[in-house]
Design a protein around this nucleic acid. Structure first.
Lengths: 221, 221
DNA sequence: AGATTTCCTGATTTCATAGTCAGGAACCGG
DNA sequence: CCGGTTCCTGACTATGAAATCAGGAAATCT
């Protein structure tokens, strides 16, 4: 009766479904929901368009299924952060930024999706907030609050601070096409990646540190 | 024969055309080209849908016309930057950031458009690079290069540095819906705006300054 | 091998939206 | 008051993309 759950749990056509999800995630994150056509995804995944409807009921389900692939990434991040729960807030924040950069390079779709839907608002943003980025952001804001209280971070509004850190860290990654078009630079080249990570941790995060914290920075590898 | 140029130059229906452009710019910048429907714009502008075709041939023309409204903003910015051409690069950069923040608050569409099309790539990004943001970005990169050479900025890749500064500065502004959904915070409230501007200039830009430059910062109002 | 389920497709329908067109109203200049 | 232009609209067409469905191939089981 019910041919397919949200994530196709059947062991057989799993390869096809996963291939579709990969393509879908990439396209949705670059172009946004409406710009993407099922025909386009089908073609890139080398299947027919109705196959998408077989594995995922409709476009909205496909979108959510693709997002759930990212949920696993977030969950893993959370696990690592949890392990560091007892360290000073500023150390946790630095670690969070390192993880954020790592994830952003490995799964650039996440940052793009957040940017896309975070600007547009609407129900997809609500969904993302509930299932993907909301808890993580609020946890980060809490860490920032503690780091400020400890005198390690300059006292700016924690929510804005968190979003600004993320926007700065993901900017160059998300806007890779712009860098290519405008500067002829490829930010995904290994050297550029390393320079970027340095820049974010050293200059951007560094800029938020208090003098006090700056002095004792060596603790935080 | 030719009823309408790119920007309707006729003095009569100018009010209507300008109303349409306002709505179009807002919607295009929030949702991106494909998500926007002419019917939606027409409704918001209180005209019929064919009216859009009367003033602007088709959707692509309307998009470009809407973007040209931003070109005036960029031109004015450029004029102000030109006036400061002989000041030290680091002072120019600080001024550029102030201007960027001002413009971003006043015309949030600009940052959103850049983010949207900068992630997607394609011909619209090419157009934007040529007509709107390319020259500005390259000029900024040049200023950064000079500021690094003068020992005022930490030596990170100028292109990435410029984009990161802008991404950080525009992040909270572009992602206002995300802040509302995730934190219940309104970044457009006057207090939040002031805090944000401080944060960008003090922490983010500050983080890129060398120790040397940091010491003599008072010159730069 | 035969039966059954899983997986996928071609053909078709439905629907939203971009774009067209003929005509009408409002606003002129004489 | 009247011809002409500018501005706008309702009704229509065309197109592209989402969704449906019957059917067939391929795998799996007995």
């Amino acid at each position: 009766m019910t041919p397919t759950p949200e994530w196709s749990a059947t062991p057989k056509g799993e390869a096809t479904a996963s291939r579709i999800l990969d393509v879908a995630l990439d396209q949705f994150s670059r172009l946004g929901f409406e710009r993407v056509t099922l025909g386009g995804i089908a073609q890139a995944a080398a299947v027919s368009q109705p196959t998408l409807h077989y594995h995922f009921q409709d476009k909205a389900h496909l979108w959510r299924s693709a997002m759930l692939a990212l949920a696993a990434v977030i969950a893993e991040e959370e696990r690592l952060m949890d392990a560091a729960r007892d360290m000073p807030a500023i150390v946790q924040l630095r670690m969070a930024m390192r993880l954020f950069l790592q994830i952003s390079w490995k799964h650039p779709a996440l940052g793009r999706i957040v940017a896309l839907e975070g600007m547009a608002g609407g129900e997809r943003l609500e969904w993302l907030d509930r299932h993907l980025i909301g808890p993580r952001n609020r946890r980060l804001a809490q860490i920032v609050r503690e780091a400020i209280a400890a005198g390690d971070l300059k006292p700016f509004p924690p929510e804005q601070l968190v979003i600004t850190l993320q926007a700065a860290a993901a900017g160059v990654i998300n806007l890779a096409p712009l860098l290519r078009a405008g500067f002829g630079v490829d930010p995904e080249a290994p050297a550029a990646r390393a320079a970027h990570d340095d820049m974010i941790l050293e200059a951007v995060l560094g800029g938020f540190l208090t003098e006090k914290s700056r002095a004792t920075r060596e603790q935080t590898t």
